[in-house]
Every structure is written in C-alpha cells, then in structure tokens.
Write a protein that binds this DNA or RNA. Structure first.
Lengths: 136, 136
DNA sequence: TCTTGACCTTCCCATGATGGCAAGCTTCAT
DNA sequence: ATGAAGCTTGCCATCATGGGAAGGTCAAGA
C-alpha cells in the first residue's frame, strides 16, 4: 500500500491501458498527472478510482464526451441526481436504437441466407437481392 | 435514358455519396471509372448497379472488406453459393455478438437508472456504481 | 460571346477510440 | 556497471465517412 503508482501499475489496477491513460489526460478528460523529477507520471489511489470510473463507463458504452459529463457530475457534490439519470436514460435510448438497427440487419440477412441453397451451385438469391437493392 | 452519368448523377441514383464513390475507387473496391477528356468520371447503368450493390451491403452492416469478397463472388459466375452463404452467416454471428453486447450494457444501465431517484438530491447510486467498478 | 453558377477534380484534415512502433531516458536488480 | 524493464514523446494506422479549399469544366442565359 504505497499509495503512489507509476502509469503501468495504475493501468493494471484500473484496467485502462497506459496508452489510454495518457490519451485521456491529453484530451483533458483526466487532470494532468503529477510527475516525478524525471518526468514519470504518478497516480494516487484516488486517481486509480477515477480511472476505474472511466473504465466502467466505457464498458457500459458511454462515449468519452459523456464520460466527461459523468465525471464532472461525480465530482460535483451539489449535483442533482436527475441530471445523472437523464444522461443515462439518453444513453439507454441510443443503445436501444443501435440494437434495433442491428436486429433489422440480422433479420434481413437471416431471411436471405435461408433462401440460399448454400451448395456448389452458383445461383444465389443473396447476391441477387444485394444487387436489386431492396433488402427484405 | 442516356446511359452515361457523371458522378453526381451516379450518386443520386445509387445512394452512395460522390465522396464515397471516389473513395471506393481509390481503395480498389470498384474499378477505375472511365473518364472524359477533361477528367470527369463516367458511369454506365451497370456501374450504377455495382454502386447499389455496395450501398445495400453497407446498409446490411458489411465491412468494405466483406463487400469486396461479395463483389468478387457476384462477378464470378462459377462461384459456389455456399461461399456466399458462409460469408453471410459469419456476418450474422458478428451482428448477434454486437447485439448481445449492447443488450448487456442496456440492461445494466436500466437497472442502475431504476435505483436512482432522479430528483434534485445529489445522492446517486449510478455514480456510486460507476465508481465501484462492478456493473450489475 | 461572356458570365455565372453548378458541377467536377485532387488533396489535406477531422472524426472516435484504440493500438503499434521507434528513439531515447530512468530505474532497479544483479 | 550493465541490462532489462519501464517510462517519455511523437508519429502512423485502423474504419468509414465528411468537410473544405483551390482550381478546372460545362451549360444556360444575357
């Protein structure tokens, strides 16, 4: 429990690659890290928590832009939980939209694939359909 | 029915932006277009069909790489329909994977959002959860 | 015929999130 | 003191797409 970590250790502890830690810092998503005399970045356990926060948010599909907002809500003790929830609900809607888009693609393709013999013959309704333009 | 079109007309007819038509050509996805003396690209109705093929494939979520394969199968009259179907089924699996990933995110977030009051108070289990690291 | 506006050309840059690599410095253990 | 591992910065690549600049072309109307 030393409480001060190099970027590699911070990376392992947070699950965020060193590359990305530097990148997030350069974007201003994370504050500039303290440095040793020789220029090595140093992270406190609190910093590791911020990194985990970012990591978890990424895992949930938030964009870096949204994460910036989440971070500022997180650090603002006078936030309204309404604002957080609104952001999350917006994201859920985005995810739902993506899901239905993908499902529509998948279902069209499944239909197409079912119509195709899938043997050594060249006739292929899939290609025909792609050429015609109007997918099922 | 003139049968020869500038890139702008080809774009409108195919639904592929002029920008992208040029890009696909530069990638080798589409053959180099004939040119007028002054350098304007010219497209035949057959070319428009190819463009529509690409467009439809993109709408179904295929990558340009996959589309290249589809195009070569399309133009190969001795293809085996099996190869087409295999490609499509692989893509369906990819889509399914993406769908379940997004669904997992969405469900976690829905759970989180439900726990949050969403009023003017600052307490927010969403932020707490993001900070803790283990999403539901 | 000249002008004007719409169209075309190429080239470079940007997105969003991430990875890879290279050249060079630091730290630490042997 | 030497070598390995780790750090630094900086540039390039991905994937598919769009924006814009600078300049050439074409057709229609005055």
């Amino acid at each position: 429990m030393k409480g001060v970590y190099n970027i590699g250790e911070a990376s392992k502890m947070s699950g965020v690659s060193a590359k990305m830690i530097r990148h997030y810092e350069s974007l201003g998503l994370l504050p500039k890290a303290r440095r040793t005399e020789s220029g090595y970045r140093q992270y406190s356990t609190e910093d590791i928590h911020s990194l985990r926060f970012v990591r978890t948010s990424r895992d949930l599909g938030f964009s870096l832009d949204e994460i910036q907002k989440l971070l500022s809500l997180w650090s603002n003790k006078r936030r309204a939980s309404r604002d957080v929830r609104r952001l999350v609900e917006k994201h859920v809607e985005d995810l739902n939209q993506k899901i239905v888009d993908l499902q529509r693609m998948r279902d069209s393709l499944k239909n197409l694939a079912q119509c195709c013999h899938g043997d050594e013959r060249p006739e292929c309704p899939i290609l025909d359909q792609l050429a015609e333009g109007e997918p099922t």
